[in-house]
């Protein structure tokens, strides 16, 4: 799908109770901070936290939905700036900031219901 400079888009996801387990099984990331709430509390995280790469996968989904072709995503980077807990609602708000030389540059704001930015410095580059 053609995208235009200034275009905005949105996507969201509610982190269900077992998401960290599904993600662990699919990705191999069984770090106890993700699958064991007691362990998460013990190390000061307040419970089990969602794998950052799962949040990144949700963010990626918002971009590939927009462009309609997963093969057109060329780059994605982000900083995991705050933990995502079970039952949080993650909202992705994207803006196409520029289009030049066949590439689209996308800025994403990824927050939870408290307004906390869980990903920062998100940059996505797509073929247009």
């Amino acid at each position: 799908m053609a995208i235009t400079k200034g275009q905005t888009f949105q996507d969201s996801e509610v982190v269900d109770k077992y998401r960290t387990l599904y993600y662990a099984g699919a990705s191999g990331d069984f770090n106890p901070i993700h699958i064991d709430p007691e362990f998460g509390k013990m190390v000061g995280l307040g419970g089990a936290i969602l794998q950052g790469l799962c949040t990144m996968a949700f963010a990626t989904r918002s971009v590939t939905k927009l462009i309609g072709d997963p093969g057109k995503l060329k780059k994605l980077k982000c900083r995991f700036s705050a933990p995502v807990m079970i039952e949080d609602t993650i909202t992705m708000q994207g803006t196409v900031t520029d289009i030049k030389e066949g590439l689209g540059y996308i800025d994403l704001k990824v927050t939870t219901q408290t307004g906390a930015e869980v990903l920062q410095k998100v940059e996505a580059v797509v073929e247009v």
Partner: peptide, 9 residues
């Protein structure tokens, strides 16, 4: 914890 991730495709 995972701090940052960069991916080029």
């Amino acid at each position: 914890v995972h701090g940052e991730q960069e991916m080029d495709f």
